[in-house]
Design a protein around this nucleic acid. Structure first.
Lengths: 139, 139
DNA sequence: GCTAATCCATACTAATCTTATATAGATTTA
DNA sequence: TAAATCTATATAAGATTAGTATGGATTAGC
């Protein structure tokens, strides 16, 4: 039960943008150096962030990426839901039809409740909570 | 971010044993039929459950498997920790040395807190909570 | 117009993990 | 003696992950 690096990197990218938002659009190359993530992989990760309206971009020279929302408005929950193919702990939580017993399955309800508790926590943690501190560029 | 089937099956096995604890030792063949898990796979899954002292076994004819603890004493948290190779959401939570920035990384602390909240919930959910209901043998 | 930059799509791959199944027995006890 | 657990290891198919590679199209500052 492990978060994908995409979620972890996604969080780091947004924290990086939040930290550097005073200096105008932030270029992928800069993020790449600071976060040690390849430019090409960053391109892949930023795309969904843009689709989700968490990031906007400026094209052309001096262009780059900017947070589209205030850091207080972006939560880890949003990021994780965006990047995890399956955001529930078990499939039958969101797709009860995958299991013939789902109707009155106590175990399913337990996985569902645990998933909910987890996301309550993630949803209440924002980029703003994470951007302070002594340059924790990692994880 | 998905639980392995081993955790899910582990929970189902223990619930099955709890439900059938009045009829003496429960044989792997019976569990296999009820839970639709192969005998050989069940053997693999029961071994760690025994090592963790959640199940005891009786050998020989009429033998089988019995819960070693009361259902109220076995939690989903124990099961998940037992079966998930990595029980934290991200590696650096338990192994900060994996990341050079772990010392004062805010993001790491957030993943740690989310992991903790999740396990608080799993630890407070017991097999006893799951064994009632209309035969939910699945998930 | 040149160039720095984002944007887009897709393909490939290496490695790892998952989910079993298979094989071949040793041991225990009704 | 036979039903059952126990042990250990090997194999394999499939999925997923984490990236890299390829090859460009587009935008806009200078």
């Amino acid at each position: 039960m492990k978060l994908s690096t995409r979620s972890r990197y996604g969080a780091r990218i947004l924290v990086d943008l939040a930290r550097n938002k005073d200096q105008g659009p932030v270029q992928i190359g800069e993020i790449s150096k600071r976060q040690d993530i390849s430019v090409k992989y960053l391109e892949q990760l930023i795309r969904p962030l843009k689709k989700a309206n968490l990031v906007t971009s400026v094209r052309g020279p001096k262009g780059g990426h900017i947070l589209a929302e205030k850091p207080e408005k972006i939560s880890l929950g949003q990021i994780v839901r965006l990047f995890e193919g399956q955001s529930d702990l078990v499939e039958c939580v969101s797709f009860p039809e995958k299991c013939p017993m789902s109707d009155d399955c106590q175990v399913r309800l337990a996985w569902r409740d645990a998933t909910e508790v987890l996301y309550e926590k993630l949803d209440s943690t924002t980029i703003s909570d994470l951007m302070n501190g002594n340059k924790p560029e990692d994880d």
